Simulated assay, not measured.
Amino acid sequence: MALTTPIITDVQYIEVCERLKVMRRQESTHYSTPDYLAAEWQARLVEEAAEDDIAREVNELANPNEGSSGQTSSSQINELWREKICEWCYQVVDHFDFNREVVNVAMTYLDRYLATRTVNRRIFQLAAMTALYLAIKLFEPGKLRMSSLIELSRGYFLAEHIVAMEDSMLQALSWHVHPPTPFAFCRDLTKLISADVTPRLRHDISELARFLTELSVCDYYFVTRKPSSIAMASIINAMELMGPHKIDPRYKVQFLHHVVEAGLDIANDDEIIQCYERLREMYIAGGYTPTSDDDEEEENDTIRVETGSPTGVADGPDSVTVSANQEEIMECA
């Protein structure tokens, strides 16, 4: 079987390969995230907490009545809290019609920050809101005033709280604030799909892959996984979920061949398989359906997660309304 070439030119192909190489290096160095909720990791953070002057200052500012004891009250921070605050972030960006990839960026800030220090409930919420504000400020510049975000907190936090947390977060992140997201990988990887695939199908694959990457953002399971693995798993799932009547299986084989030619060693990468299986399970459990060629409105509902207007950050991660058609998430235990 002869392999067809990607739709891009030779120069564009070289650029794609170079970008993929750079992003792969970034995801393995500055932007890698440990399993910070693991008991061993949290125990180490507790030991180091006494020496963290910056975090203590932020904690005292946001918790004037708690004193230093609130700094180590991290026992309730768990995967469910993270999931709910992530959903709240999506509500905010949808309310203001921002690019949803901003939430992915914000969550990488939050995850990497939480990997450096212990936090209590209120500091967790402040860190999440600040991470979102910082991501919007960098990737949607000039589109959100701090006062608007403070209004969403219903007076729970003030501008000085966000400013102090932003300083603390930037120092903890060592100013590495341009993470390679799964969909950033998808944008380049989908250019390696065969030129024989029609623009419409190529668009549908990209949009379904985008949706799958968004599913991964709220799931703590993917925090320690490489964005490139999530991207590959999303594209492969998208091509399969479209069905063989739309995407001939040989195009998936050709795509994988092109990926290897581009320099990605995927043959022995078990992480891609693990991400593939997890995303497929989430997709099926969520009751989603593949894109429909016959119903444009159905396609839009399938690709974009429906969310309602944002609630206050004080409501999350205790209770966040995900959609007008869904029940309110139960309060954390």
Rank of each mutant, 00 (worst) to 15 (best):
S206E: 11
L212I: 12
L158I: 10
Q42W: 00
A131S: 15
L110R: 01
V313W: 11
C186E: 05
R200G: 01
A43I: 00
E87R: 08
A267F: 06
Y156R: 12
I284W: 11
P227R: 08
N300G: 00
C275T: 12
L189F: 02
Y276T: 04
T181D: 03
F222I: 04
K246V: 13
M242C: 14
C86H: 01
T311W: 02
A233I: 10
D301M: 09
Y283N: 11
E87H: 07
R187K: 10
C218D: 00
E47V: 07
I162P: 00
N99W: 08
P290G: 03
S75D: 13
I284V: 15
P64C: 12
L158A: 12
I193F: 04
Y288W: 14
F211L: 07
M242F: 05
L212R: 05
N268W: 09
I272S: 03
S28A: 12
L80H: 01
S68I: 13
F139L: 13
D219N: 04
W41C: 01
S32D: 10
P64K: 15
A39S: 10
A135D: 06
V11Q: 12
A231K: 07
E327V: 10
D188A: 06
V217L: 07
D265S: 11
A49K: 06
I303F: 02
G286W: 11
R121Y: 12
V105F: 00
Y276V: 08
N99M: 10
P141G: 04
E151H: 08
F98I: 11
Q254K: 06
D248H: 15
P6F: 06
E281H: 09
M239G: 03
P249T: 10
N99E: 14
M232D: 04
D315K: 02
D248M: 10
L158S: 07
L132V: 09
L241D: 08
A50T: 09
L256I: 11
T307W: 00
N268T: 15
F98R: 03
Y288L: 15
L170C: 14
S75I: 14
S228I: 03
M169W: 04
A285D: 12
N325D: 15
E87A: 06
A333C: 11
Q71Y: 02
D265W: 05
R121K: 15
R117I: 03
K143H: 15
A184P: 00
S153D: 02
N237E: 14
E306R: 13
L144T: 08
Q125N: 07
D318G: 02
K137L: 11
D35R: 04
A115E: 05
M282V: 13
V46D: 05
P182F: 05
W88L: 15
I236H: 04
Y36R: 04
C218L: 07
E166G: 07
I8H: 02
Y36M: 08
E297C: 08
E240Y: 08
D167T: 14
